Simulated assay, not measured.
Amino acid sequence: MSDASEGLTWRKSSESLNGDCVEVASLPDGVAVRDSKNPGGPRLTFSRSEWHAFLQGANQGEFNDL
């Protein structure tokens, strides 16, 4: 889904079965995350290093106990 007003292209996981999940968009200096059910609502922003650290932890099972 593209947000032309901000020039952002939002993506969600292909594993999303019902469409209710988080979406991510690339920013010039990081990554934005929002709730797909509320696209006009608030969003979180992360630097590229923060995002890569999160992905690394997720890939290594760091959050499996949550």
Rank of each mutant, 00 (worst) to 15 (best):
S5R: 15
R11S: 07
N18F: 00
R11V: 03
C21D: 15
R34G: 07
R48L: 13
G7D: 02
G41I: 07
H52F: 00
S26F: 10
N18E: 06
A4T: 11
G7Y: 01
D35Q: 01
V33Y: 05
K12Q: 13
A53G: 15
R48A: 11
W10N: 13
V22T: 02
M1W: 07
T9V: 15
K12Y: 02
P39Q: 14
S26K: 10
P39K: 13
L55R: 12
E62P: 00
F63M: 02
G40R: 12
L44I: 12
S47R: 13
L17E: 11
T9D: 13
S13L: 01
D3P: 04
S36R: 08
S14G: 13
L27W: 03
T45I: 07
V31C: 07
C21T: 15
G61P: 10
S16Q: 05
N18V: 00
E15C: 04
N64F: 01
A58H: 12
S14K: 13
S49Q: 14
G40F: 00
A25P: 09
W51N: 14
S13R: 04
L55F: 02
L66G: 05
D35W: 00
G30I: 04
S2K: 14
H52T: 08
S2E: 12
S47F: 08
E62F: 09
K12P: 04
S47T: 15
E6M: 03
W10S: 12
K37R: 13
K12W: 01
A58D: 09
S13P: 03
G7C: 03
D65G: 06
S47P: 05
T45G: 04
K37F: 00
N18L: 00
A53D: 15
H52A: 08
L44V: 09
Q60R: 15
G19R: 03
R11M: 01
L66R: 12
G57Q: 08
T45N: 01
W51Y: 05
D65K: 10
D65P: 02
Q60I: 00
D3Q: 09
E6F: 10
P42L: 13
G41E: 11
F54I: 06
L55C: 15
S49T: 14
L27S: 02
W10P: 11
N18C: 03
S36D: 04
K12G: 01
S13N: 07
S47C: 07
L44R: 10
S16V: 06
S14P: 06
G41N: 11
A58K: 06
F46P: 07
G57T: 06
S49K: 03
N59V: 02
F54W: 07
T9G: 12
P42R: 11
F63E: 07
A53W: 03
L44A: 12
G30M: 08
D20R: 13
P39C: 12
E23R: 14
F54L: 15
G41P: 09
P39R: 14
E23D: 10
A25L: 06
D35T: 00
E50I: 00
S14I: 05
S36N: 09
N38F: 03
G61Q: 10
Q56E: 06
E23F: 06
G19F: 04
G41K: 06
V31A: 01
R34H: 08
L44S: 11
E50F: 03
F54G: 13
